[in-house]
């Protein structure tokens, strides 16, 4: 292989700082997008399991729409198309005046997309809790919102911690898509280091290690959380 490795580049100023800065933005994007995805996804998941046909239809339409268009295309729609179909003043605000336009757009796009996936996890969690619990709640005089608040959701979340963890990690990885609209997150930083130093593979290696480390750390922590919060009497609790 005809390539001159220079690992020192990763520890040299300013490139080490660039990698950390890129990681910081990757984490910011992932966490904020996750807030949107989790909140909206939970609401939609509830919609899809309620007794109201209208709410169920809204939930289904949302999921089908957002799940069947590639996330990159969705990102472009939000970034390039959405501001142009708004009234001029609003479009200008989206493009210029709102804080960090490109990054905010990326956060919203990722959040809305992942909400459709979280919705499906929440729905399957609620379904896994079972009809019996729902009926029992209603039988003791709880309203439907109360049943969700006190019985279905708390149990469902405890069941779906593993799939939700993997959805969060998906956001974390997909935040790299933000580079296509000019957000300089971790992957974009490695490209920038290559431009300045022509040592692309070292920078890629650094990013690879950082992504893996964060992923494995999150997985390790969540496995611990999952054990602590497992519902008694299920396989996850280990006492089947």
């Amino acid at each position: 292989m005809n390539y001159n490795w220079d690992w020192g580049i990763l520890f040299r100023d300013p490139y080490a700082g660039w990698i950390l800065e890129g990681l910081w933005w990757t984490i910011v994007i992932s966490l904020l997008a996750w807030v949107i995805a989790f909140t909206l996804g939970s609401i939609l998941g509830v919609f899809r399991t309620t007794s109201s046909p209208i709410l169920r239809a809204i939930g289904t339409c949302y999921v089908e729409l957002f799940r069947n268009i590639p996330i990159l295309v969705q990102l472009f729609l939000w970034y390039f198309v959405f501001p142009e179909i708004l009234p001029d003043d609003w479009g200008r605000w989206v493009k210029r005046d709102m804080p960090a336009p490109a990054m905010t757009t990326a956060i919203v796009a990722l959040g809305l997309y992942t909400a459709s996936r979280v919705c499906e996890q929440v729905r399957s969690g609620i379904e896994a809790v079972g009809v019996g619990q729902r009926q029992a709640g209603r039988a003791i005089g709880m309203t439907e919102p109360q049943v969700y608040r006190h019985i279905l959701l708390p149990n469902a979340y405890r069941i779906i911690i593993p799939p939700l963890t993997s959805e969060f990690l998906t956001i974390f990885k997909q935040s790299s898509l933000a580079l296509t609209i000019g957000v300089v997150e971790l992957t974009a930083m490695t490209r920038q280091i290559e431009e300045y130093t022509f040592q692309g593979f070292e920078a890629f290696t650094a990013a690879t290690i950082v992504y893996s480390l964060v992923t494995f750390t999150v997985m390790f922590l969540m496995r611990f959380v999952d054990k602590r919060t497992a519902l008694p009497g299920t396989f996850a609790s280990g006492g089947a």
Partner: peptide, 18 residues
């Protein structure tokens, strides 16, 4: 500084007042 992928994206950003 707004980084863009290529001249087309940069020009589009100028045309649309980004």
């Amino acid at each position: 500084v707004v980084p863009v992928k290529d001249h087309s994206q940069g020009w589009l950003a100028l045309e649309t007042d980004r």
